[in-house]
Design a binder for these strands. Structure first.
Lengths: 216, 216, 216, 216
DNA sequence: AATGAATGAGACTTCATTCAT
DNA sequence: TATGAATGAAGTCTCATTCAT
């Protein structure tokens, strides 16, 4: 898990700079999540980060720049999370359940920001093309990581043929919808509830809800 | 299907007023859908509706008021749509497939507004409590209508026991996710593609993706 | 002199709009003249024009737009002035003296704005090319009008051959320098002083300062 | 030409301080010339001078202070230049032509800064009175130096009576106007063109443009 | 002496809402 | 009832200056 950065040792200056950047990002993340990108003002970010307004501009070129930095972090984190689940022990059902659970946890933590991102992407922007492609590309990376788990099962004949990516996106849709709804309605998710929901989702994906009279 | 309004007969004045309100709503719907709530200005709405800017305030108390009126309409429409599918011919699979298809169509038409609504709801607002409860309540109405289809199957033992509402929301999540993604990536959905996707979603919900060796 | 505008009659609406635009331009002209473009704030313009700050944007798209409108007016006025002098009675000396005098008067009235314009042009801007060419073109129009007076004399052999435009620009340089300096040092120019200075400038241009022992 | 500074010997500390001050001034000169006073930031000056931003404040009290120091240098230089021309060989025409040429060269080199200075002076500032008087006084010094050349000719009866300062300022106006225009339109001035223009200006000043039938 | 991170006043611009006509 | 000119609060961003290291 130790992500060796190209230069293991940074100057004190550089380290402090990064730390303060992260302070700003953390403040922004909370606010963007709570109020959305447009509704969050720089004054608020500055205040929450305990900096002067102008100081932010020593670390980020614009409000959008802060937002993009957050997107990067989020996508990076989600890729790491997917990799962990895909390489964890157990069969496909175990891995997918773990993924569903981790993802719901992930959404509980970052979901609001995630929502803000989707929202912002949804709008036309100048930087649209390049940035959108980047995000789509990285999302696909996640889909491929989990899709590989399904592909293995398909090769073994235990999962019906299909486009793994389709299945993964539907899995993601269910996860996201469920997590968002639970948070919206109940504020949060208890660990037990998390487990139950994750199991339910995977059960639907793998088994469906129709009762089969097997082994007649 | 004729929705009898509480007062069958309205004065000419009242009828004209409603008509003009609807003109404004139609203009606003297109703009909110295309650019989002915040990014749409009253000037634009006024221009598209071919009214003076001040005139809007004779019909709606504020920009937000227009937005809320649109939400009402959208929810009303979705309830109608759900009822139609639930009462259509065929077995549960047919009804659900029809629902998936109609819903995707519905999202194709209103999806951007739908997105704008979700977005707006997601944020804390003054009117939060009351409005949120109203929306949740009406969403539940939809869930119950489709849930009843599943309940019938459960009673007949052909669908495994569970909370129908859970199943419906997951169905909705898959529908919404798929539709949104298709629109975002490909711009629109062809009728054929609509059918294929609706079938896939229902197939996952009912059958799952695991291969069963039925031992005929 | 009556410049018939394409439409002799404008709607009351349009007339009032123009009047208010002119109010804003007048306020801006004074301020730009006194403090320069960059140093003048929109708040000041709004206050002097007795409008709310936002109101300015109903009449001009930006601060620069106001500036450009002023340039247009100034150039238009100077062309009119040059035409009047060139078509006035008397010989070339009389016309040129009149031009010098009028121009000094013109600079007394508009010189500060003129300076602000030159200043602003001097700096690189996005709109540089197009706008600069426009201004240069219109300046040339003035130079050509007065140059034609000199050309007539050249054709008659009473003025030595040369590029009329060169002579005119030098004349302009002297006029502008003198007027600017007088205003800077003494605040204004009395009519008598105006006459004396105009005569001096023309005398230098036409006769030079060397004493000639004519008719030996 | 050796300008003896009041104190022939300065401490090493003092000498180094002056050297660094000059480094800063050189950087500022280029930037002010290219972009104007307002548009140049202290960051840019610091970077070009290869100092930290805060360091500048050890050498100058403010951004304006730097500007004023540059004005001082420029005026000092122009006085030196004028003295050289006035004391050069040849008759008045030769000296004046040399002055015109040198001055155009001077403007080519320093013109943008010159322009920035005029611009800045033109505006009302706190330091107005004292500083303005200083600059005017030093400009007069230049005018007097060149004016003395004309005075000699007047005394000899070869130049018509008048205020030498008036003639010099008009000469300066023509020089400045011509040089500025050439730079603005063509970017620079070739040596040949410089000579031609200088000759033209002096020819106008001394001879005027009227053809005289000298009746030899 | 040298540094550059921190600051906040102040600039331009947008836009929902009001109100006189 | 219909209008759109007027408004000013609020938003993002810049930059000269200060000050702790």
């Amino acid at each position: 898990m130790s992500e060796h950065s190209p230069q293991e040792t940074l100057s004190r200056r550089e380290r402090e700079k990064r730390a303060r950047q992260q302070d700003i990002l953390n403040a922004a993340r909370e606010l963007f999540a709570a109020k959305g990108f447009r509704e969050t003002t720089l004054d608020e970010i500055a205040q929450k980060a305990e900096f002067g307004k102008g100081t932010l501009y020593n670390y980020f070129a614009s409000k959008e720049d802060i937002f993009h930095a957050l997107i990067d972090q989020l996508l990076e984190d989600s890729i790491v999370m997917a990799r962990q689940c895909a390489s964890s022990d157990g069969d496909a059902r175990a891995k997918l359940t773990r993924y569903a659970r981790s993802n719901m946890e992930f959404i509980r933590t970052n979901g609001e920001l995630f929502h803000a991102i989707v929202e912002e992407l949804h709008r036309g922007r100048k930087s649209e093309a390049a940035r959108l492609q980047d995000i789509i590309g990285r999302s696909r990376t996640v889909a491929n990581i989990i899709g590989a788990v399904l592909q293995t099962e398909m090769d073994a004949g235990t999962v019906r043929k299909g486009e793994p990516a389709d299945y993964v996106t539907m899995l993601d849709d269910m996860i996201r919808g469920l997590a968002s709804r639970q948070i919206l309605l109940h504020g949060t998710l208890s660990p037990d509830e998390l487990d139950r929901q994750a199991g339910l989702i995977i059960s639907i994906l793998l088994d469906g809800i129709t009762v089969r009279h097997s082994k007649g």
